[in-house]
Nucleic acid binder design. Structure first.
Lengths: 205, 205
DNA sequence: GTCTATAGAGTGATAGAC
DNA sequence: GTCTATCACTCTATAGAC
């Protein structure tokens, strides 16, 4: 019995057969390492070592390192858009802006690494992969743009330039990833409230 | 005569002697490549190739790759703090906040790459180097924190949490690096005005 | 100061045994 | 499905000629 079997609690299985657990573990470890050290600084051997397999075994789950990054980012963007579609999109522009702001921040609770790599690792995607991810990012940001434009048209918001305001708000909200820690002095709900207060005032609502 | 001599316009000099020009060129190229592709993804050979020398020649100017990154970031932070000290720090908290906001954005005009790597490449610093840069970053952010606290105390600003507001505003302002291009539809002065409008309202001034 | 050459370690990815 | 072993490079950094 090797060390990994103990960790898995998987004592009855054939020695080297863990397809159901290894796949998710690889994604999990890669996500954490990419977020902590950056895609380019993380080797396949390092990922394998933390998973508890040899480097060659990774290639049963991913054709190459680039696909690993792309799949993580792509899965994240799909999940983000799906979760966003479930969240509140009704009401006045102010209501919708509050829903968007709180949604984006609350999404950090379970997926802080995903949000972090989604905006930090874009430059490490191949051109073809970049186009796909950038398209999904655009879809997400367009939701915010739409809210801001609607608010300006209805007179609820006073914004000089809604396009730039979109970028500014997204940057501000994404910044949460760089300092928020679950064990810190503030809960994520506190953070939501503080940011919503600033966003609401910033747009003039 | 080699190709580099033609580029330099430096035809009278001994073949391989360019200490006065090569040093700055290395820093310039490294800065641009680190900003575009990330420190870990850029090799010394790639820097050397763009400068127009062989990789070994770089080590006449830097003891190692890490020092190159550190020197760029350290020089930038020193320059940023020095330039900031020259800018307006008088008046009401609102005046001071406007000066800080405009200063930070206008600094993108000449040093967009420096600002970008200063917040993107922190994780690629060795622990000892990280401590130094993080200390300088703290000094800079403390200036903003001080302004926000003063504004809250004087009743000019309405902020739930000035510490979080500092992070939020810094993130928002740094976000300019991710989308602003000199050849775009807006001048940096336009951007200053748009951001200052949002910051001013966000703090409740 | 720059060159060529190279040491020594590490890289992504593959082949074949089990 | 995982292992060991390895290919073919690339990496940082150094040594010594010029």
């Amino acid at each position: 019995m090797n060390a990994r079997s103990v960790i898995d609690g998987d004592m009855a299985r054939t020695t080297g057969s863990h397809s159901d657990i290894t796949g998710p573990r690889i994604r999990e470890v890669a996500l954490r390492l990419f977020a902590a050290e950056g895609y380019a600084a993380v080797s396949m051997r390092k990922i394998a070592a933390e998973v508890g397999v040899q480097a060659g075994a990774l290639y049963n789950y991913t054709p190459d390192k680039q696909s690993l990054l792309f799949d993580l980012m792509h899965g994240h963007m799909e999940d983000l858009l799906a979760a966003r579609a479930q969240a509140g999109t009704a009401g006045t522009p102010t209501d919708r802006l509050e829903a968007f702001t709180r949604f984006h921040i609350s999404y950090h609770e379970e997926r802080p690494h995903e949000i972090f790599i989604a905006y930090m690792e874009l430059r490490n995607l191949t051109p073809e992969n970049f186009v796909v991810i950038e398209g999904l990012r655009g879809k997400y940001e367009d939701e915010l743009s739409g809210i801001l434009r609607a608010g300006v048209e209805s007179g609820e918001f006073t914004l000089v330039d809604p396009r730039v305001a979109t970028r500014a708000i997204i940057s501000m909200l994404n910044g949460v990833t760089t300092w928020y820690r679950r064990e810190g002095r503030l809960s994520l709900t506190d953070v939501e409230t503080i940011y919503w207060d600033m966003v609401r005032k910033a747009v003039g609502a």
